[in-house]
């Protein structure tokens, strides 16, 4: 059963669906948070991560996640672009391309390097500190992705409509946060307090500012082939 759930989560993460984790026992009386993240024009923001930090930390799973999930490398791109995980999660980086990749991160939350490899690395990478981890490939500079490491077991990633549902939350007080790779300002500035009851759902909406998406481009520039 545990393996089946793990597989389900891996598949959902792989497919880039809005993903909700709940590692605490599923109770008959659990609350929900319906989150909506919009940009300043009112358009839904995809790939935002909404986190619910319980005021009573024992409501969360302090032991962290035990599953191994994956970030694929397909057609010289990371998939998914944003992967939210709980502290203590091991992430594997299988290379589905027929060329070698060199995955690395300089982020304070996880500094690591997987030198040139094909296939699946022998050991997954353990994400043991909260924070956003920026992934890169030293061979293909345009490849970029983010692992958001949450110190709460209650989080979800928004879909194309900007919506995400956090389900099966134990009743109580929570601090909500929203994060996005292009969030203008600090994540802490998005914090808000909510109370989750045994029944019904809490609606939470953010209108966040986004910085322009300047990424190292994959598309060629005439006369610069080879860089």
């Amino acid at each position: 059963m545990k393996n089946t759930l793990r597989e389900l989560r891996v598949r959902m993460a792989h497919a880039g669906f809005a993903l909700t984790f709940c590692l605490s026992p599923v109770g008959a009386h659990a609350g929900e948070i319906h989150a909506l993240v919009r940009d300043k024009t009112g358009k839904g923001v995809v790939d935002a991560v909404v986190v619910a930090l319980p005021a009573n930390r024992s409501a969360g799973n302090a032991g962290g996640a035990s599953a191994t999930i994956i970030v694929d490398q397909v057609n010289k791109e990371f998939i998914p672009y944003v992967l939210p995980v709980q502290v203590g999660t091991a992430v594997n980086f299988p290379n589905k391309d027929n060329i070698r990749h060199h995955v690395y991160s300089f982020s304070p939350a996880k500094n690591f390097e997987l030198p040139l490899y094909m296939g699946t690395p022998a050991s997954p990478v353990l994400f043991d500190k909260p924070g956003a981890v920026v992934l890169g490939c030293n061979i293909h500079d345009w490849m970029i992705a983010y692992v958001y490491v949450s110190d709460s077991p209650y989080f979800a990633k928004t879909g194309a409509d900007g919506k995400a549902n956090l389900t099966e939350l134990p009743p109580g007080d929570y601090t909500l946060r929203a994060w996005h790779p292009r969030l203008a300002g600090k994540e802490e500035a998005t914090e808000r307090k909510v109370a989750v009851s045994r029944t019904g759902a809490v609606e939470a909406t953010w209108d966040i500012g986004l910085t322009p998406e300047f990424r190292i481009r994959r598309a060629p520039i005439p006369g610069q082939r080879g860089y």
Binding site: R217, R218, A219, P220, I221, P222, G223
Partner: peptide
């Protein structure tokens, strides 16, 4: 002296006026 403006087209392509 060469100058150009290049627009990304669908991620893997570009259109450039030079």
């Amino acid at each position: 002296l060469s100058l150009g403006v290049s627009r990304v087209v669908g991620g893997q392509a570009s259109f450039t006026l030079g």
